[in-house]
């Protein structure tokens, strides 16, 4: 997100306009230290973030590590054609989109609901305590979280099965993690558990910046608590919700990697694999670098296109631009 403060450009022009061309060089010389402070780091960024894009050429070859660049066989878009005719890839694409939509919807709804409800808590220490507790899982790694999920859902003594059995909903423990149809839901629930408090931060901040006189006016009009939530709080945070929603569209092919990789197993593989896992498997385990790179490029290009469209959409909605 580019966000040079307004007025900055004008200021620069105002400064430079009267200067003579020769003084440009003096200015550059004066900024020698700034250059030493930034250009080496820029070179580093180029090496690690931009230079590897050269590797995208692999997707248009039948890449073989043993050959030099000149000797590689070029195949055009064959890898991409193969990809979209491949049942596994289409399955993986479906899983990725499904899980990311589920995560997004659940994530938004729960975080907004949590923020709105927490905002209604008037006892300060209670509010602070709840909020602090709610951040906790965000700081745990997915390794730890998936370990916790596995323990919680386990058939011998996992709390979910114990509770469901005590309440009489089920007769015997369910093997949650071995049921393909539960996998997407479990991933969604894990995300909610981990990030609900963290995601709510931004909404809570937006709620506190709502003009209090709006609430007073609503009260005078006889609005009760629910009406105020519905007609003041929610509209008050609508801009931020829209920006975040639009921006999240750019990550639609990013359903995550870790949680699916760690919780997935042979039984649920048709429902658990995402594009990232596909890339890892084909690329580094099977050694089909070209196909894996093609899949990676597909993901990146779709993300960038979506991001720029979202950016334009945001502009048309009159919201702040994202980039």
């Amino acid at each position: 997100m580019e966000e040079i403060p307004e007025g900055h450009m004008q200021l620069n022009h105002a400064e430079t306009a009267p200067m003579l061309r020769a003084s440009r060089f003096r200015r550059l010389r004066d900024q020698k230290q700034l250059m030493w402070m930034s250009l080496p780091i820029l070179a580093y960024v180029f090496l690690f973030s931009y230079y590897p894009i050269w590797g995208w050429t692999m997707a248009f070859q039948n890449y073989s590590p043993a050959k030099s660049f000149g000797e590689q066989a070029w195949v055009g878009f064959d890898q991409f054609k193969f990809l979209f005719g491949d049942d596994t890839f289409l399955l993986v694409l479906r899983n990725t989109i499904a899980m990311s939509v589920i995560n997004m919807v659940l994530g938004f709804v729960t975080a907004i609901a949590f923020a709105v409800l927490l905002n209604e808590v008037k006892t300060r220490w209670f509010k602070r305590t709840i909020q602090t507790i709610s951040y906790l899982p965000h700081f745990l790694s997915w390794i730890i979280v998936t370990g916790i999920v596995a323990t919680t859902l386990s058939v011998d003594g996992g709390i979910v099965n114990v509770l469901l059995m005590k309440l009489g909903f089920i007769q015997e423990p369910i093997m949650w993690l071995s049921k393909p149809h539960y996998f997407w839901g479990i991933v969604g629930a894990s995300h909610v558990w981990k990030e609900i408090g963290w995601n709510a931060i931004i909404y809570l901040a937006a709620i506190t910046s709502i003009d209090p006189s709006l609430y007073e006016a609503a009260e005078i009009d006889g609005a009760n608590r629910y009406r105020k939530m519905l007609h003041v709080t929610l509209p008050g945070i609508r801009p931020i919700i829209i920006i975040l929603l639009i921006m999240n569209l750019g990550w639609i092919l990013d359903a995550g990697f870790e949680v699916q990789y760690l919780l997935g197993n042979g039984v649920v593989v048709d429902w658990s694999q995402t594009i990232d896992i596909f890339v890892l498997k084909y690329g580094l385990q099977i050694g089909n670098y070209s196909l894996a790179t093609a899949a990676g490029i597909f993901k990146t290009v779709v993300s960038i296109v979506l991001l720029f469209s979202a950016n334009m959409l945001a502009k048309r909605f009159g919201e702040n631009r994202l980039i």
Binding site: L28, Q31, P52, W56, V279
Partner: peptide, 26 residues
């Protein structure tokens, strides 16, 4: 503000938030 490369560098760095070369090239 006076640094001539401030804006280009910011853009180049910020763009890395939105794409990466991917697993295999990296």
């Amino acid at each position: 503000k006076e640094y001539v490369f401030a804006k280009p560098i910011t853009i180049i760095v910020v763009l890395t938030m939105y794409f990466n070369a991917g697993l295999i090239p990296s």
